[in-house]
Amino acid sequence: MSELAALSNSYQNWYRFSRNPTAVIGLVIVVVSILAALLAPHITPYPDHIGAIVDFRNRHQPPSAAHWFGTDNVGRDILTRVIFGLRVSLMLAFVVLIIAVPFGTVLGLLAGYFGGWTEIVIMRLTDIALALPPLIMALAVAAVLEPSLMNAMLAIASLWWTWHTRLVYSMVRQIRALEYVEAAETLGASKTHILFREILPNCVSAIAVKTSLDAGFVILIGASLSFLGLGIQPPTPDLGTMVSDGASFLPDYWWESLLPGTAILFVALGFNLLGDGLRDLFDVEDVR
């Protein structure tokens, strides 16, 4: 494709994407969340409230001009802690996916292209990993090692690759029978070339859709983990922990639990809408 054609193509894609209101909402939510997380120390009203600060005169304040999201049971600004909590959630999703997606993709490529024993071994491995609920796996690892963000991320990543393996595998099975792959084989192209230069590019859009949807779900699992007290440890702000801490003050001080919970919902929703939008754009039906 010439550069001009590529440019026009990406412009067309952007045009089609921008006509889809829910997809644009998703993109906006994702971009705003990422920016807020990156700039947290500069945009939050009380950046020092992320630590173990206690201000009893200001505890349980309802939302006001000074504290948009109210304050918690030791008087810390909840908006500040929610924005810093986003950092933890997004970091979790980022690290899990940056490990799981390439790993799962390569395994899926190998299983789908080579078949035979490679396929049997890899696909049975995915069956095993699929039988383990990621939340329980993360809990078990958190128990055996120490509960920390790093361990949680490793535990979730160690199971998450399976979804990408299964996705890429089923696509490669269809793609490898296409004539252009056969042509490349006849020309004597190397296996690496066929796998990564001929087949992989045709899977990229499906992987992108899946990754965006995944980001939302990984964030949910991470939040559940910290809700149970096995995620990142206090006083670092974490959305799941905030919901759990605030829960004992429901329904009177509703903002302490409800607003952080809504923040989780919001980010996960953003990634989901974005994923759905990309799916419509790339027209990859069967990616969930």
């Binding site: 939302g216 949910l220 939040a223 559940s224 809700f227 799941g240 919901v243 759990s244 829960a247 429901l250 329904p251 639990s257 409800l258 919970g261 989780i264 919902l265 996960a268 929703l269 989901n272 809408l273 759905d276």
Partner: peptide
Amino acid sequence: AIVAAVMPTFFIALLLQVLAGYV
């Protein structure tokens, strides 16, 4: 379907508990 999918289970559980149980 979308909202239900992205709503953390613990959040739904808490909301239902407070709404139907206490309120």
